[in-house]
């Protein structure tokens, strides 16, 4: 009985640990998904990610509207004024560590800016840029 519970507890811990990921894990997962969508997938581009981040995509907002041009800086929600912690993992270790959170925010914010979900290619490009040392030129 006790050993069953111990095994169950160890398994639960293992699941919890597996859910705490690194930005590189997300990049790998986006790459795998992008490759499935397009066999000619040729990797991510930080430059393309930066351009994507700053574009309004035909709407009113871009990512920059709330997150600023410098992902290592504190942002501010364009409507409510609420403080938004930095996006760059180097400036904010909580970013790109929880799959549920990453999925939620890409869904919400891509719908806000592009009126659609982002592709794995787009997400990977943005992440590549966010992971660049000194991304945004703010430092």
């Amino acid at each position: 009985m006790r050993s069953t519970i111990l095994v169950a507890a160890a398994f639960a811990l293992g699941v919890a640990a597996a859910r705490a990921e690194t930005p590189a894990d997300f990049e790998a997962a986006f790459a795998a998904e992008a490759r499935r969508a397009d066999p000619a997938f040729a990797g991510f581009s930080a430059a393309r990610g930066q351009q994507f981040f700053g574009s309004t995509h035909g709407g009113d907002w871009s990512c920059v509207s709330c997150h600023t041009k410098d992902p290592s800086a504190v942002g501010e929600h364009v409507v409510t004024g609420k403080r938004i912690e930095p996006l760059a993992p180097a400036a904010n270790p909580k970013r790109f560590s929880d799959p549920a959170s990453v999925e939620k925010w890409f869904k919400r914010n891509c719908n806000d800016v592009l009126k659609r979900l982002c592709t794995a290619q787009e997400k990977g490009d943005v992440l590549a840029w966010l992971m660049m040392p000194g991304a945004g030129g703010g430092r």
Partner: peptide
């Protein structure tokens, strides 16, 4: 899903 112009959906 359309919360004052933004997607604030929660599962």
């Amino acid at each position: 899903e359309q919360h004052f112009g933004v997607d604030a959906s929660v599962d």
